[in-house]
């Protein structure tokens, strides 16, 4: 069972990187929207895994996408941040429930799942676009990019999430 979930995560990692760089980085909706569906990796990743490994893996995910998209280490920095903040976000969304052994993402309500995903996306995009544009003079531009890209990312993540949802056991 352990090797199975390990294997699943490796496959997910590779597929999400490829889908991100070969499809979604080239989407350019309205000229500037490139949704970042690889955030799903952090959404799907098992909750009770070793936390340091999770943070390291998130950094690796970000940096591999950076390699392809010539974006220095922007994806790495923002993915790292949500990986670190994920337990805090989960505590906020699911309450104390998520610390129980029997907690499963698939057992929570739809609203909770969407809120969790939305918070991940917003934090990620905020960090990403702030670092990318790197000046507060362009605050409105940052906000516009966060909201527009965030909305499309959320929509696509929800679609992908329901397409490849983890089986209820």
């Amino acid at each position: 069972m352990i090797s199975n979930s390990y294997f699943l995560n490796v496959i997910r990692f590779l597929l999400l990187v490829l889908v991100q760089v070969l499809v979604f980085n080239r989407l350019n909706f309205f000229g500037f929207i490139n949704p970042m569906v690889y955030i799903l990796f952090l959404y799907w990743y098992p909750i009770k895994e070793h936390r340091a490994a999770f943070i390291g893996l998130a950094f690796l995910l970000g940096i591999s996408i950076d390699f392809f998209s010539d974006s220095m280490a922007l994806h790495a920095a923002s993915t790292l941040t949500i990986a670190y903040m994920r337990p805090a976000i989960m505590r906020f969304v699911f309450g104390v429930n998520f610390e129980f052994q029997s907690f499963k993402l698939s057992n929570t309500t739809r609203i909770q799942q969407i809120t969790f995903l939305t918070l991940l996306i917003i934090v990620h995009h905020l960090v990403f676009f702030t670092l990318e544009i790197f000046s507060l003079a362009n605050f409105l531009l940052i906000l516009k990019k966060v909201l527009a890209t965030g909305a499309v990312t959320l929509l696509l993540c929800l679609l992908f999430g329901s397409l490849f949802s983890v089986r209820k056991e």
């Binding site: 340091a52 390291g56 950094f59 220095m72 280490a73 922007l74 920095a77 941040t81 670190y84 670092l131």
Partner: peptide, 15 residues
């Protein structure tokens, strides 16, 4: 937290 800070400094450094 230290791991996070370390990796963050690495990526900010590159950026």
């Amino acid at each position: 937290f230290l791991l996070y800070i370390f990796l963050m400094i690495v990526s900010l450094g590159f950026t």
